[in-house]
Write a protein that binds this DNA or RNA. Sequence first.
DNA 1: CGGGACTCCTGCCAGC
DNA 2: TGCTGGCAGGAGTCCC
Length: 290
Amino acid sequence: MPELPEVETVRRGLAPALEGARIAEVIVNRPDLRFPFPDNFVGRLTDAEVQSLARRGKYLLAPLSTGETLIAHLGMSGRFVIERMQDGEAVPGVFYHDHDARAKKHDHLIVTAVKGNQSSAITYNDPRRFGFVDLVPSSALGECRHFRMMGPEPLSPEFTGQTLKQSVAAKQTSIKAALLDQRVVSGLGNIYVCEALYRAGISPKRAAGRISAGRLNRLVPIIKQVLNEAIAAGGSSLRDFSATDGQLGYFQHDFSVYGREGAPCLGCGAPIRRITTAGRSTFYCSHCQR
DNA sequence: CGGGACTCCTGCCAGC
DNA sequence: TGCTGGCAGGAGTCCC
């Protein structure tokens, strides 16, 4: 599922139920996801208060009253679903798996968060189990293995044409691979890299280190624009992504190239091409992107 | 060392 | 209808 816009959509969906809530119950249905659950995971979470819910790249971060921060990564197919209860009654309009009978099968983690008279069951479901959760000391978040090497947030002022130029200057690899590298910039994935490069008119095959400062200066605001549009649309719903309340994002209707192999380029009409690099599909227009 | 290929896992869909 | 192969939003690891 999730690149930055989808994770941000999930964050916004979970925040009202989690921020300021006490974790009353934790159910773990298997020993591991991509990695084993941390030691004594249930004990370290139970009765902790969630101070806030933040996002870094494609990670969700929940700093806790215990001094640890709960980290979640959704991998390819992870998602969170909320069932909210108020005074023992389900809150109308909030769905729990109604839209998808497959969901219950891979419910790996269920957290009950209590806030005032509201209780929310928050379920992490992930068929492929490429996602994971972790608990790290809040005081050393930046030094933990997940964030130590991570590049700037693409929507932050620290991500500029200049900083991008600097981080890819020595790279022989393609601009596509460079932008997917979370050490260069954090949060981009296959969809939004394809879309941004199309809008910027840059070939995904072009060597990252050989792109002029001027073109990178134009690329960076385009990346921000694509991400902001996708966040505003609630992310992209391919296959199984939905927000925590079951609502579907709709940015997939605005794709210019992703998933459009053979369809006419919106700019010139030439067929969109698909190539495979490192096992990943890349969609682009060989006429408009140079 | 940088960079590319391969790998983890399950589900779905097109094609036969 | 049923099987098979290919493909999927990520990213760590291995090998050249």
